[in-house]
Amino acid sequence: MSKRAFELDLTQPSQGGVYFVGVDDLDRLARTAARDELHVCRTDLAGCRDKDELLRRLAASLQLPATFGHNWDALADCLRDLGWMPGWGHVLLFEHADALRQATEADFTILLGVLDDAATFASDNDRPWFAFLAMPDHAFDDSLLPT
């Protein structure tokens, strides 16, 4: 995790966003979020190879409504309105995010955009909203992660 990420205050909507972290950071982030009474949702992407599998996993881990349409637009709508979840803010933790990036970089990039849009929407509405994607140390090479 970068030094800046260690300085994040998860209670501040203006600091919300999408962050790449090391695999060892997720438990600490979960504890910090729980302490601050933010809802924590973990999604394991180990072995996730495509958009359909990603959306199935997110539907389960986020406990998305039965009406969830299993497409990018539906995911974006759901992530903008997490009202069915407890907490005054939300922290999404993605384990093994590199599995999806390596399997389908295009879907990984779209996911990042959807997450970023949701974080911006939450910040605009004064709600903390963070997504942390755990990546192996070698993935932090500037040439591997999208900008």
Rank of each mutant, 00 (worst) to 15 (best):
M1H: 08
S2G: 01
E7S: 08
D9F: 00
L10E: 00
L10G: 02
Q12G: 00
P13A: 09
G16P: 03
G17A: 06
G17D: 08
G17L: 05
F20G: 04
F20H: 06
D25G: 02
D25F: 04
D27Q: 12
A34Y: 05
D36P: 03
E37D: 09
C41S: 08
A46M: 12
A46Y: 10
A46V: 11
G47K: 11
R49A: 14
D50T: 11
K51H: 03
D52C: 01
D52W: 03
E53G: 08
E53P: 04
L54G: 07
A60G: 01
A60N: 04
Q63Y: 01
T67Q: 14
F68Y: 04
N71S: 03
L75C: 02
D77F: 15
R80E: 08
R80S: 05
G89M: 07
G89C: 04
L92N: 03
L93G: 13
F94N: 12
H96K: 06
D98Q: 15
E105F: 09
A106P: 03
D107E: 15
F108G: 08
T109M: 06
V114F: 08
D116R: 15
A122W: 02
D126G: 00
D126H: 10
M135I: 09
P136T: 00
P136Y: 08
D137P: 01
D137Q: 07
H138A: 12
A139G: 01
D142S: 14
L144C: 05
